[in-house]
Design a protein around this nucleic acid. Sequence first.
DNA 1: GTGATTGTCAACTGGCTGGTTGGAAATGCT
DNA 2: AGCATTTCCAACCAGCCAGTTGACAATCAC
Lengths: 205, 205
Amino acid sequence: MQRRNPEATRRKLLVAARHEFAASGLAGARVDEIAARAGVNKQLVYHYFGDKDAIYLAVLEWVYEEIREQERKLNLEGLPPEAAIRKLIEASFDHLAAHPDFIVLLNDENRGGARHVRGSKRLEAMHSPLVSMVSKILKQGVQNGAFRRGIDPVQLYISIAALSYFFFSNTPTLSAIFGKDLRSPAAQRARRKHVVDLVMQSLRP
Amino acid sequence: MQRRNPEATRRKLLVAARHEFAASGLAGARVDEIAARAGVNKQLVYHYFGDKDAIYLAVLEWVYEEIREQERKLNLEGLPPEAAIRKLIEASFDHLAAHPDFIVLLNDENRGGARHVRGSKRLEAMHSPLVSMVSKILKQGVQNGAFRRGIDPVQLYISIAALSYFFFSNTPTLSAIFGKDLRSPAAQRARRKHVVDLVMQSLRP
DNA sequence: GTGATTGTCAACTGGCTGGTTGGAAATGCT
DNA sequence: AGCATTTCCAACCAGCCAGTTGACAATCAC
């Protein structure tokens, strides 16, 4: 019998589950596979998390916590509005580039109507600071003449997310359609540049 | 024994499969359920399509054909560049609004690396006319002074798709995050308006 | 009308699945 | 040291799953 380390065991299960759910979706993921990936006995999934849905939710909470953490670390205070929006767009793009599993997990969760997200007290408490940031930056930008009036901060937030998220989310089918590899560093650089450009040009007065 | 109608049977199976794959993804969808939804004997799935993957691919080909059909019917010829882009954005938005299952099917297919799409001769032959359309419109717009120079048509095509697709794709989680129903007609109208606005403002010289 | 082909039916099947059970042993507390 | 609790192990299990099989009958072609 293995020496005990409950925290490490729990962690290994979460890491394995993250990979498995990203690869196979909730319905396709296999508890046996999660345990095998973690290198532990399958019963430990039930021991630590209770059931398949519960470990799935724990993974969702984890990936959301990551992106919220990144958002909190943005440090846009004191930047001129244009530089702030640019930084925000770039950071958002970079986070998605570094965490493609966030995207596929979210897509699968959305297909199921966000049932788990909606039932989570923890996620409910996990506000994104970004909308109020965007709102403040827009106001400052309008005041100093850098941005046009009348832009809704929620809509802009969604659009900034959309322009990067969709690219990563749909890279396989887009690559198939265009017959070129959008996963390449060059393609990602081009996309990042375009996203920044499209938004910044749109915000002009 | 039922009177025979092979075309109707095949059709019923495809319709049912479309619903089931959209609801449950490829891994989660059940052949029994597809047959039950279609109101036919399960063995007919195998008779008409061969196996689960094959009926899944048939559904993908169907939904792609639909969007290609809509694209072909756009009739942008002769429109001024600004009106043409606007119409294109609006039609794209409207198609996604009317076919949310296209989005979830594509998301699931992308999670699997677009394996089916990449293997389909039929989809390979199914070019989107949109990139060349966008390219032509941009050129005309630059020439007549309506649009700024240097916009890549492929990137713009991806962005136009992104701004609508992401909104519909992520409506459940976004609704949960914002605590408001983005599925409502008012929310969709607001989004449509914003998408048109963001892009048109961005294209200004 | 006859035979071949095709569409439809019902039942079957080997392996897979999420979850359960019983027990061993590591650990902590008194 | 003894007992209680917690962590870990291995095996089990009822039901599910994609796919198969055998047969019937509708339809077509000659």
